[in-house]
Nucleic acid binder design. Structure first.
Length: 298
DNA sequence: AAGGAATACAACCGCAGGCGG
DNA sequence: TCCGCCTGCGGTTGTATTCCT
């Protein structure tokens, strides 16, 4: 027995949505919600559309707070980094970019970003656009200066080691705040997020560590640069934690290499996260104080 | 000015997995 | 436990628009 069709294909309209249909769908959902049943919705709303089509239209276009238009360099970077880590899991990537839909990101990746990274020569008009973008960015950098910052701190207690320690930290709520990059350092061992960090590890070896927020990974108090290692995890729930920002901050060149080599971090069944530490050591027990900074701009 | 190529993005399709009966 | 329905996801296609020659 075959799969039941999701709707009566002979009696549904296909193709682009008209403004009238948009209004009908929007007004219906705003008034009654989806009712948890997309299949029944078009009939109730008086639309000759498939439920799946309605759902797609709502999620990708009509729903509030959808952001259309150009992707910012920051968004580019997030997409690239996440793609390098987890591959084409567009819904997960979209979750890190408020207002962007998975469809949007997928289209953007397939039509622009991928080509950009793989080094396709842009056409003359694209070249012109890029030049204009670069000029705008330079102008913005001159205009926007940080005016104040807000700091918060959180203490994390961890008795886990190795992979479990990473999972423990990644599961923390504040990890999903997109302002912060997931970074880690070593006391003898520590996992943390962006900003300034201090820790008190069980063996007392950990002292105050500060990081240059704009150049994560560099210890501005001097000392050895942080050593990053890559770990693969099998637990899908981990991905919630990766929302903390960029698990790894790949440059375009590195991502390009990954793409050309056919590597997306780990294989399809794995999830990728970065964890740092001195090479070959386990992460120890301790309380880790994480101080987070958000810079506000004019 | 016209036709073809390239680009952008909306929408469709099929599959997998969750869930309830 | 099985089965069917429904949703969500990712790949792909369709089409309008813009640009190039």
């Amino acid at each position: 027995m075959g799969r039941a069709p999701c709707c009566d294909k002979a009696n549904v309209k296909k193709g682009p949505w008209s403004p009238e249909e948009d209004i009908k769908l929007k007004e219906f959902i705003e008034k009654y919600g989806t009712g948890g049943n997309w299949i029944a919705l078009p009939h109730k709303a008086g639309l000759k559309r498939c439920g799946k089509s309605c759902r797609l239209r709502w999620l990708n276009y009509l729903r509030p707070n959808i952001k259309h238009g150009e992707f910012s360099p920051d968004e580019d970077r997030i997409i690239c980094t996440l793609f390098a880590n987890i591959g084409s899991r567009w819904s997960i990537i979209a979750a890190q970019l408020p207002g962007r839909t998975d469809n949007d990101i997928k289209n953007y990746w397939n039509t622009k970003l991928k080509k950009k990274l793989l080094g396709f020569t842009p056409s003359k008009r694209k070249l012109l656009q890029l030049q204009q973008q670069q000029q705008q960015q330079q102008q913005q950098q001159q205009i926007y200066q940080p005016c104040f910052e807000i700091s918060t701190s959180t203490t994390i207690s961890s008795t886990y080691q190795g992979k479990e320690a990473a999972q423990q930290v990644l599961s923390l709520d504040h990890a999903v705040q997109d302002q912060y990059q997931m970074k880690s350092s070593t006391g003898s061992s520590i996992l943390m997020f962006g900003g300034e960090t201090s820790c008190s590890s069980s063996d007392g070896s950990c002292t105050q560590i500060s990081y240059d927020y704009n150049n994560m990974g560099n210890n501005i108090n001097g000392g050895e640069p942080i050593v990053f290692e890559h770990q693969c995890f099998y637990d899908e729930k981990m991905m919630v934690g990766i929302g903390g920002g960029e698990p790894m901050d790949y440059g375009y060149e590195e991502i390009r290499e990954l793409l050309l080599n056919g590597q997306n971090g780990c294989n399809d069944n794995m999830y990728f996260a970065a964890a740092a530490g001195t090479e070959g050591t386990n992460r120890g027990t301790g309380n880790y104080k994480v101080q987070e900074k958000v810079m506000y701009y004019h």
